[in-house]
Design a protein around this nucleic acid. Sequence first.
DNA 1: TGTTTTTCTTGTCCTAGTTCAATGCCAGTC
DNA 2: GACTGGCATTGAACTAGGACAAGAAAAACA
Lengths: 192, 192
Amino acid sequence: MFDRINTYIIRHTNLTVEELAYFNSVLQYKTFPKKTILLHEGEVCNFEAFINKGCIRMYYIDENGFEVTLQFAIEDWWVSDIASFHDQKPSAMFIETLEECELLILSPQTKESLLARVPQLERMFRILVQRNLSSLQGRLFKTIATSAQDKYLDFIKRYPTIPQRVPQHYIASYLGISAEFLSKVRTKLSKK
Amino acid sequence: MFDRINTYIIRHTNLTVEELAYFNSVLQYKTFPKKTILLHEGEVCNFEAFINKGCIRMYYIDENGFEVTLQFAIEDWWVSDIASFHDQKPSAMFIETLEECELLILSPQTKESLLARVPQLERMFRILVQRNLSSLQGRLFKTIATSAQDKYLDFIKRYPTIPQRVPQHYIASYLGISAEFLSKVRTKLSKK
DNA sequence: TGTTTTTCTTGTCCTAGTTCAATGCCAGTC
DNA sequence: GACTGGCATTGAACTAGGACAAGAAAAACA
């Protein structure tokens, strides 16, 4: 049950055996069926979850019902609306399972006490957020500066396993293009 | 010289007087003229700087010379390519002063030893990055989901002082629209 | 002060991507 | 094994915004 996350932790920290055991002891293991909404817009996000198995999507919806996928997350990723989680304020996004999921969950309280007891994790979480920030910066750049086709090619290169796991129109909403146009881009590419 | 940053630190932490004094002692104060490039694409970013005075722009340039402004930063902001700074790897972005600037600078080494000596700052920097991440998420959403006009209106609402300080075509490149089109949006708005 | 450089505006034409609507295509599921 | 509801594809008509060019205005500079 903790194999996957422990491998992850060992790669990113040098916790002692005791610390690791303590870490495991505060995690809450939970499974969710496909298409479960874990976080609704307007709710406070009370989890930071490590994906042991499954696939999750984070997205925004505007007044007109227009959807933008912020992130797909699969095994070994952490998911949370970190701002909502941390400041305990209402979230602007949705988080939804796309497959049946096994998650290892931290609540704000357990994370707090975990960080107090194992300060080294403070660093790990900071680095995690930094990586996230940096890749989001790069993505914003690409979103603005490159064509639909290039964004799509870049996407399948960066996340080669995602297209097999999620419906194509979600990928379109990640790239910031319409589902129809993504389809047209794909047929054009396949003709080459 | 340290008034501004100390006010900032006091608001975000509860350092002791000694810790604060130590923090001040490791900061390097430097001034730069307008239009100085502080970080060039391809270089390793060796600073994390608090802006005591001035205005700075972070941006990307693609192969065709197309520019995207990632961020404007003014007094009380920290600027750095955090991924490059932290991992000591080449940056993909430029950082440039738009006005004469007074900066308080941390090098990777001083930041490292600072965090070791004042662990509370680890938390402050993590929160800083989290805020950054969260606002970038919101921005990506708006970039994809809203019209040029709405993006511009949102921008001047969020950053009311920036338009007086930076050329308009940089704002266009922040919004992801052409300078010409921003001009057209503005004349249309002023006619109403 | 005049000169040079940078920034801003305006118009025309153009295109990448959207919207809408129709059709076909599975994968469940009763 | 027929029926359903989500997905994907395709086409036609449309539009937000881009590219280019040329001038006006405003800063910077000496």
